[in-house]
Design a protein around this nucleic acid. Structure first.
Lengths: 146, 146
DNA sequence: TACCGATTTGCAACAAAGTTGCAAAGAAGC
DNA sequence: GCTTCTTTGCAACTTTGTTGCAAATCGGTA
């Protein structure tokens, strides 16, 4: 459509190929939705935003694939929704750099990754092994705070 | 059945009355399941553990009531399950002291509240308002670490 | 202990979310 | 353009959660 969209399509194709995934229309559109949105999305959100012709099953399977490849990660939420978000470039299958804080705005409902904030380390009781730490902050985002 | 069970029943009744809730069989059994388990449970877990004669609808409604009264809190998880856990005695409707860390064991699957560990405070970017912070640690619990 | 009003429960029916098998369509390499 | 392997969509199904309503239960009172 325009240069921006073109370059976005290229980014998508490169990202897919780098992860040994064939470039299909469905995957392309799902990734574009995430890149455009810039926030975390639920499977239902994606079904809605990929205007028509993208089966619910395809959405679930594609998200699952992206999770396994390390292209995306899930975000824990206090309500019972499942949210997905794009990983940073440096992530891949097996080695996640997922130590950033997630923020849920209680007014506009959007969930975002605060990539700049690193989760502070905590001292666990003896005998526990830690593999991953998630931190989710609820409150009001920049736009809704005022 | 025995003294321990009796005292547990008393605790349950006292807890319910303190929160202006009538003492019914369903509520009693659900609370006992939580006290016996000592870990966070999903609605489905509860349906199974309250041996027969407790409708799914009742479980959901009771958990919702307990949430509102501040008897329980929910725990965010990266997989798509909804977990409930008993609050500390000091919690009540409106005033939660829910700033402890949650731990999910990736081997045995149990989720527990690490009441001893307080969530470290973090410096948010300008413009954000914080109302609640959740921290979930994944790894191996004491029993599964060895 | 029996009765009464208010709350709670179970049932049935429904809505939403997620899964599985399989045949048709599409991608990648030759 | 052809072949092979992967991905998609459909249909049917399971699981999870919700709503309305009548019957059962709770707590207080006589």
């Amino acid at each position: 459509m325009n240069k921006l969209a073109d370059s976005s399509e290229d980014r998508v194709a490169i990202l897919l190929r780098r992860n040994q995934l064939s470039v299909t229309d469905g995957r392309r559109r799902i990734l574009e939705v995430f890149m455009d949105a810039g926030v975390a999305l639920s499977p239902h959100d994606i079904e809605e935003k990929t205007s028509e012709r993208l089966d619910r099953v395809t959405v679930y399977r594609t998200l699952q694939t992206f999770l396994e490849k390390g292209i995306m990660h899930t975000i824990p939420t206090t309500d019972n929704s499942v949210l997905y978000a794009l990983c940073k470039e440096s992530c891949g299958a097996g080695h996640h750099h997922d130590d950033h804080v997630h923020f849920v705005c209680e007014l506009c409902g959007t969930t975002t990754c605060l990539d700049g904030l690193t989760i502070p380390s905590i001292a666990m009781p003896d005998g526990y092994l830690v593999s991953q730490v998630n931190m989710v902050v609820n409150g009001r985002c920049k736009n809704c705070a005022a």
